[in-house]
């Protein structure tokens, strides 16, 4: 097992190196280069631009620029944000916990909802419940994440009012009420809508895979044996079927992580959630903040590769048929 994990880690290194080269190359493609943000600024003269180029090390050959950048990245230095003039590492790390907090809640929420639904759907195949849930799963997969967010805002923020205060039932954006004291209730109220959007987004796929996994297992001989021994339905499902039925779900979770990161960008943008995705969009893309963009691309790619690795290990752990050599 250790050898397998080690091999996977070693395989991830060239992949990340390749990603870093691609990220660097992409930034070079943008006309005007990293200083494009300043070019149309009347307060910055040509001499200032030249001085900035000198200061930022942009007047040396590209491969040396790459080398300087990647060695700094490995030391944890992503450069200085062109918008706020603060270290990009600080900017990103301030936002990362907010993204992880939202994604983790959504991830666990989706599992907690989809696993029981998938199991019930499979054990009562073609029942009314099964049909209803399969339909809900299909609908969840067929709409844009952001539109679902907008509809939730229309319903729970603008239409339905809180009967006690007369204000909106749920906040339409932000992570907490600005200026108010910290309270768990306030945090939870801000979390409900964005988390629901992310949960609904992955629910469809999760239910389908959980249902398919359970159906597959229920037709195995050892389940018939367990029934024949006189075990209760509950014991058969929880003790014999569950662990094997979850394997397809684990595989799909690994493949879905990049989608979740993209989904987080949209959700954060709609709900003004101060996360990494919103930082990438509002500061990176819209204001051409290169160091922040490059940093977020590298960090999210690293996280995706890392979580992919974790899923593979969990997968290997759950399914002993997988050999490690």
């Amino acid at each position: 097992m250790t050898k397998y994990i080690l091999r996977r880690v070693l395989e991830a290194i060239p992949l990340l190196l390749l990603i870093s080269i691609a990220v660097f190359a992409l930034m070079q493609l943008i006309p005007g280069g990293p200083l494009a943000a300043y070019e149309n600024n009347p307060n910055i003269s040509a001499a200032d631009l030249a001085r900035l180029q000198e200061e930022l090390g942009l007047n040396v050959p590209k491969h040396i620029q790459y080398w300087n950048w990647i060695t700094a990245v490995l030391r944890g230095d992503l450069g200085t944000s062109l918008v706020t003039q603060r270290p990009a590492t600080v900017e990103i790390l301030e936002r990362l916990p907010n993204t992880l907090y939202l994604s983790l809640v959504a991830f666990l929420g989706a599992l907690l909802i989809s696993i029981p639904i998938g199991i019930i759907s499979a054990t009562r195949q073609y029942s009314r419940f099964d049909h209803l849930m399969t339909t809900v799963a299909f609908i969840g997969q067929s709409m844009p994440v952001f539109w679902f967010g907008l509809i939730l805002i229309i319903i729970f923020h603008t239409t339905i009012k809180n009967p006690l205060t007369g204000g909106p039932l749920l906040p339409g954006g932000g992570m907490y009420t600005i200026g108010a004291d910290f309270s768990i209730e306030d945090r939870v109220r801000h979390l409900i809508l964005p988390a629901s959007v992310l949960i609904f987004f992955s629910l469809g796929t999760h239910i389908r895979y959980m249902r398919a996994g359970m159906l597959d297992v229920l037709h195995q001989d050892y389940i018939r044996t367990a029934h024949a021994k006189g075990l209760s339905e509950r014991a058969v499902i929880t003790k014999h079927a569950f662990k094997n039925s979850i394997i397809p779900l684990v595989t799909i979770i690994g493949l879905e992580i990049p989608g979740l990161v993209s989904g987080a960008l949209i959700t954060e943008t709609i709900f003004s959630w101060p996360g990494m995705g919103r930082l990438f969009f509002t500061q990176g893309i819209e204001r051409s903040d290169y160091p922040v963009m490059m940093g977020i691309l590298m960090l999210s790619a690293t996280l995706i590769v890392l979580f992919g690795l974790v899923t593979d290990v969990v997968y290997a752990f759950l399914d002993p048929r997988i050999r490690f050599d």
Partner: peptide, 9 residues
């Protein structure tokens, strides 16, 4: 490699 960078980004 293509899959490791979030598509929307």
């Amino acid at each position: 490699f293509v899959l490791s960078i979030p598509q929307l980004f």
